[in-house]
């Protein structure tokens, strides 16, 4: 027997908007890859975007990662040296935690807040002032003209920033271990060399590239979706940061489980 009364189950609006975001982001990413593969890339703008976005973020990333490295070293030197006497493990464990998880994720969080938010604000402002419409009337695809340079910049600067963040965090941890517990630099670095593998570095770079691409895709999608006036630009900028963080943590888990899962 067919029940005609309850044939439609209402789907919550938040789920619909999430699915809409995923679909639109996927389409924008697909178009951006299409233009990139076709070779129609505005190289000058790409270099400009990479350099300005990188410079914008580097100081915040350095400060954040230096303090994360020092906090981690404080925790580990206390436990490992005083409780277990395992001073040869301090450098290695700090390096593993930083390289595998902290540096890519913290860098991505800073990029989401700094670069993602600014991309949404920039493209959103262009949307409400009809600049995006002007491009479309001129038969210029905004994805190609505006998004592709930012996407390539995001994919490039995120791993670069992650490398810098990793080095800064490990060096700060090494210095703190020395100044706090007198741990020799050579012992610390030998431990790093023994425990850190090339796989850890490559997976970290892969994570960073994925985060960079996802942040720019989400930021651009929200920017292109801004409706109404300037106040809506602020709303969409906030949404970019929130959704970028959610996607960063989910993607981080997926990549970690692929490469380090049992």
């Amino acid at each position: 027997m067919v029940n005609n009364n309850n044939s439609h189950i209402p789907i919550p609006k938040s789920i619909l908007s999430f699915l809409s975001l995923v679909g639109q982001s996927y389409l924008n990413l697909y178009k951006a890859f299409y233009w990139s593969i076709k070779g129609e890339i505005n190289l000058a703008d790409t270099i400009f975007q990479a350099s300005t976005r990188g410079v914008d973020s580097i100081v915040i990333i350095l400060i954040t990662c230096i303090f994360i490295g020092m906090a981690l070293a404080l925790q580990l030197t206390n436990e490992l040296i005083e409780t277990y006497g395992a001073e040869t493990a301090v450098g290695g464990l700090v390096a593993l935690a930083i390289t595998r998880e902290l540096a890519p994720v913290v860098t991505a969080i800073v990029i989401a807040g700094r670069v993602g938010a600014s991309i949404t604000a920039e493209i959103g402002s262009m949307k409400v002032t009809e600049q995006i419409d002007a491009l479309r009337v001129m038969d210029i695809d905004p994805i190609n003209y505006l998004i592709v340079p930012r996407l390539i910049a995001g994919a490039v600067i995120s791993p670069l920033m992650t490398i810098i963040a990793t080095i800064a965090a490990i060096l700060s941890a090494m210095y703190l271990s020395y100044s706090y517990k007198g741990l020799n630099f050579a012992v610390f670095l030998d431990s790093v060399r023994d425990m850190l593998t090339m796989k850890d570095i490559l997976v970290a770079l892969l994570k960073a590239s994925c985060f960079g691409i996802l942040i720019v895709t989400i930021a651009s999608t929200f920017g292109l979706n801004v409706k109404g006036g300037a106040d809506e630009v602020g709303n969409y900028t906030t949404r970019t940061v929130v959704w970028s963080l959610v996607v960063i943590f989910i993607t981080n888990y997926i990549i970690t489980s692929i490469f380090y899962g049992v």
Partner: peptide
Amino acid sequence: NKKGMAFQFGALLNFLTVKENVALPLRKK
């Protein structure tokens, strides 16, 4: 399909100069 549109508030790309804005459809198309 050769269209041009003059927008209510100009809709000029704010990161380009006047010359670059006007040249844009020619450079791209």
